[in-house]
């Protein structure tokens, strides 16, 4: 019984959340338009959380993703003000993400600083750089090329509803692509299996001949580039950039991975489970807003639901361990 609760409790909980909103918002919740909406709203968080999964597979963290997202947004925006083309500015911003990620990898893996401490420090560094680069200003309006802002508004039309076109948002497509890449990397390559081995037991992995140091280092490149990409998506969505706008992504992304871990058989981070975690958070925001729940109460509820889900899963696991 406990086994079943542990294995499927999380899934049941998520379905219960969806059913709750579907019943309370019969007209507007389970409509294609609203679901596409949610997919777009969670797209940035999806990218950060999916790449965060890569380092959390090894038991590591990257706290710097939020400020990296802010930094990449203002880097691109500043280059726009210098009349750089969209592809060139986006390329540089992603390169900044790659460099920042590799730097995190070096201080965690080669230097050996605890990820919590190391990435807390680089969080501050990246955040400071974002202010230096932007001079503390919000860059918006004519400085942002129309093509860049339009990207987040557009997407292929996939149908009609209520005489209005249904658009599959570009941001959703980007998020799907990232999840797919991370799924292939983690689940379909020996690289991914080695990361899981490191997460299982780092010493055993090293003794088995797995090159732990370079692998840990490289994994942080994913979070760096993912954060930079999410920052660009955010900047495109708001057609502007300021030095703090991505900061909120970090905690929510880690929460989403934890929420996802309650769904997997042995509590390991899996990218599709992370996606489910992100989706639950997005559904909660969307549904509670539509039900006109006060925004501050909404935050309390979301935090409480995370605690409840993770707590239930921990209790279930302990029960299972006792029986063994």
């Amino acid at each position: 019984m406990m086994q079943v609760a542990r294995r499927f409790g999380g899934v049941a909980g998520m379905l219960a959340v969806i059913a709750f909103f579907a019943i309370n918002l019969p007209e507007t919740f389970l409509t294609p338009r609203n679901l596409l909406n949610i997919s777009q709203q969670i797209s940035m968080l999806t990218v950060v959380a999916a790449t965060m999964t890569v380092v959390m597979v090894m038991g590591d963290f990257d706290l710097s993703v939020g400020s990296m997202a802010s930094l990449s947004g203002v880097v691109a925006a500043i280059l726009f003000t210098q009349d750089w083309s969209v592809p060139a500015a986006v390329g540089v911003a992603l390169a900044v993400g790659l460099a920042g990620g590799l730097f995190n990898g070096i201080v965690v893996s080669v230097v050996g600083i605890l990820p919590f401490v190391a990435t807390l420090a680089t969080l501050t560094v990246f955040s400071g750089l974002a202010f230096v680069v932007s001079d503390g200003r919000t860059i918006f309006g004519r400085d942002i090329p129309p093509g860049f802002g339009d990207f987040a508004r557009g997407g292929p039309v996939i149908g009609m509803a209520d005489e209005r076109a249904l658009v599959l948002p570009n941001l959703t497509l980007v998020a799907i692509a990232v999840v797919l890449v991370i799924w292939i990397v983690l689940e379909q390559t020996s690289y991914g299996r080695r990361l899981y081995a490191i997460g299982g037991n780092r010493d055993a992995a090293r003794l088995a001949g797995i090159p732990v140091v370079p692998l840990r280092l490289s994994a942080f490149a994913f979070t760096g580039v993912g954060a930079a990409l999410a920052g660009l998506m955010y900047a495109s969505r708001v057609a502007s950039a300021n030095p703090t706008q991505g900061d909120g992504l970090m905690l929510t992304a880690i929460a989403a991975v934890f929420l996802g871990m309650t769904l997997t058989r042995d509590g390991q981070p899996k990218v599709l489970a992370t996606l489910a975690g992100v989706a639950v958070l997005g559904v909660l925001d969307n549904g509670l807003t539509q039900m006109r729940v006060d925004s501050y109460v909404r935050e309390v509820l979301v935090g409480a639901i995370i605690l409840f889900a993770v707590g239930l899963s921990a209790l279930g696991r302990r029960g299972a361990a006792r029986r063994r």
Partner: peptide
């Protein structure tokens, strides 16, 4: 403070 979330919440209330 989250401006992108303003867009998301606008979409939600439009839907509602």
């Amino acid at each position: 403070g989250d401006v992108a979330a303003v867009i998301s919440r606008m979409e939600d209330v439009v839907n509602q």
